[in-house]
Structures are given as structure tokens and as C-alpha cells.
């Protein structure tokens, strides 16, 4: 039997983590599947469980100083219903898992699970989201892209908790999201694509492009984005083949039980092309 600890507040949670190597559980939806052993059997956890889903500090959504702050234990279904959450993020969350799972699963869990197919991630990468990581002694704030280092791998230290996600509160004039799953309801992504852009005076003033499920981590290239910013919208059409060509080597998907590398690559580049053409 593993130990379980249910702290009264965040401080107590962090102090517990400082003393005991433990597994934080907010919603549990990913962990319970990863550790499942079969019907009627207990999941296979080897460290004490630290329950953090109920902590008030982690359940707030607020807008401060031009940033949206989302507590790590906010449920996916709560994101959909909250009017502070950007539509582009909601578009992704609405297609995640199913209603009974979204009533359990948290945004922090989706980030810490660090799956290449994590569906909140393309948006968070594109939106330049920051993560707040706290330990009993310290606090650091890092971009989401620096937090996730590979499939299931993050820079989270054993005494740290992801407490908050900070998204610059910026409204884009173009919001594009497409998830390609096996079916319409309840699917893991074969590929996903987020495109955000701003157009002023017929010129692209900002553009963000992120691909999910096609590399060990989410694919985003500031360099390619920078090469598009400043272009008149009228030139985009001619630039599309060049942009697609630049992205192509970054899209390095795999064959697995759900899809093929070839399809994932093709479809990702088609979605990119479609997004760009829609800007014109």
C-alpha cells in the first residue's frame, strides 16, 4: 500500500514534497491509465501520492497585468466554460477526451504529462505561455517550451509543483485549430495544428504556428515565423511553398498504432498551407 497525503494548502503540499519524493495527482486521468494493471487491481504507484486537485490556490483563473493566470488544477471542462479563456485554447480543449474525463483532467496534468499528443500544448507554445514552478524554497517561471524536453520528460524537479500557467492576454485576429484523430469523439491526436495571426493594414504583424504529435515535442519555429512577419497579405500566397518547405524538415513524426509518419507529415503541412491561405 502506498501512502497518500492530502495537504490543506499549497504551502503544506510544497513542504511535503520537500521531505518526501512523491507523485502529485491533480485529476489523475493520465497517471491512472499509465499505472493501471488490469481489472480489479490497484494501479502500480511506487511513491506516496500527493493529492493537489482540491487546493484552492491551484484552482483560480484570473487576469492580471495583461496576463491570464490559470491554476494548474483547473479542470478541462472549467476552461471551456470560463469567459477569460481564449477561444483558441477552448477549441483545443473541447476536442480532448470526453466529458466524464474532462470533469477530472486538469490543464496542469496535460502539461506535466508532456505527451507529444498533449492537446493543450500547441496552443500554449503558440501563445508564449509561461509556467510557474514552485518549491517550498523557490519559485521559477519558464516558457512552456523550455519545460518540456521530450516525450514524458520535463525539467520539473522532484520538490517542485507546477502551480500556474500564464498566458499573455492577447487577442489574435486569426485563430486556427485542427485536430486530426481517428474519430470525432474521444480520440488521441494523430496530428494537431494551431495557427494564430494578426493582420494590420494588410500586413502580417504577428504569426504563431505550432504542430502537435509530429515530433518528440511540439514544433514551433520563431525563425520561420519572423520570416513571415511584416509580409503584406497579398504576398502570402506566393510565399506558401517556401514556408511549407522550411517547416518540412521540422516535422518528424513516427509510425504507431494510430497512424503513419507519412500521413502525419502530409496532413500537418496541408493544415499549415490551409491556415496560410486563409490569411490571404
Amino acid at each position: 500500500m502506498v501512502e497518500g497525503f492530502r495537504p490543506a494548502d499549497l504551502q503544506e503540499a510544497l513542504e511535503f514534497m520537500a521531505k518526501h519524493p512523491s507523485i502529485p495527482i491533480a485529476g489523475g486521468t493520465d497517471l491512472m491509465i499509465q499505472k493501471a494493471r488490469g481489472f480489479g487491481l490497484k494501479p502500480d504507484f511506487n511513491k506516496p501520492l500527493l493529492f493537489i486537485g482540491h487546493l484552492r490556490e491551484l484552482r483560480q483563473i484570473s487576469v492580471r497585468n495583461g496576463n491570464i493566470h490559470i491554476g494548474a488544477s483547473v479542470l478541462l471542462n472549467e476552461l471551456i466554460k470560463n469567459d477569460k479563456i481564449p477561444e483558441a485554447l477552448k477549441m483545443a480543449v473541447r476536442q480532448m477526451a470526453s466529458p466524464p474525463s474532462r470533469n477530472l483532467a486538469t490543464i496542469g496534468g496535460n502539461i506535466c504529462n508532456a505527451s507529444p499528443a498533449g492537446d493543450t500544448l500547441p496552443y500554449l507554445y503558440a501563445a508564449d505561455a509561461f509556467l510557474v514552478l514552485k518549491s517550498s524554497q523557490a519559485e521559477r517561471k519558464i516558457p512552456v517550451g523550455k519545460f518540456i524536453t521530450g516525450p514524458g520528460k520535463t525539467t520539473l524537479k522532484s520538490d517542485e509543483l507546477l502551480t500556474e500557467i500564464i498566458i499573455p492576454d492577447k487577442v489574435f485576429s486569426a485563430n486556427y485549430y485542427k485536430k486530426v484523430g481517428t474519430r470525432k469523439g474521444m480520440s488521441l491526436s494523430k496530428a494537431s495544428f494551431t495557427g494564430l495571426a494578426d493582420i494590420e493594414s494588410e500586413k502580417i504583424t504577428d504569426i504563431r504556428i505550432a504542430f502537435g504529435s509530429v515530433a518528440p515535442t511540439i514544433v514551433r519555429s520563431r525563425e520561420i515565423e519572423a520570416s513571415i512577419i511584416g509580409k503584406p497579405v497579398s504576398e502570402i500566397k506566393n510565399a506558401v511553398p517556401e514556408i511549407v518547405k522550411k517547416f518540412a524538415p521540422l516535422i518528424r513524426p513516427i509510425d504507431d498504432a494510430r497512424s503513419s509518419a507519412e500521413y502525419r507529415k502530409q496532413v500537418s503541412l496541408r493544415l499549415l498551407e490551409n491556415f496560410l491561405m486563409k490569411l490571404t
Binding site: 470526453s98 481517428t182 474519430r183 469523439g185 474521444m186 488521441l188 504507431d256 498504432a257 494510430r258
Partner: peptide
């Protein structure tokens, strides 16, 4: 079998 659970072997849902 490459698909041996309901995550990988997909049957139609109400949305499909």
C-alpha cells in the same frame, strides 16, 4: 496486435 485496447482500437462514438 498493434491495437489491443480501446484507446488504440477505436469504435464509433455518439459523435461519429
Amino acid at each position: 496486435l498493434a491495437q489491443h485496447n480501446l484507446t488504440d482500437y477505436k469504435i464509433p462514438t455518439s459523435m461519429d
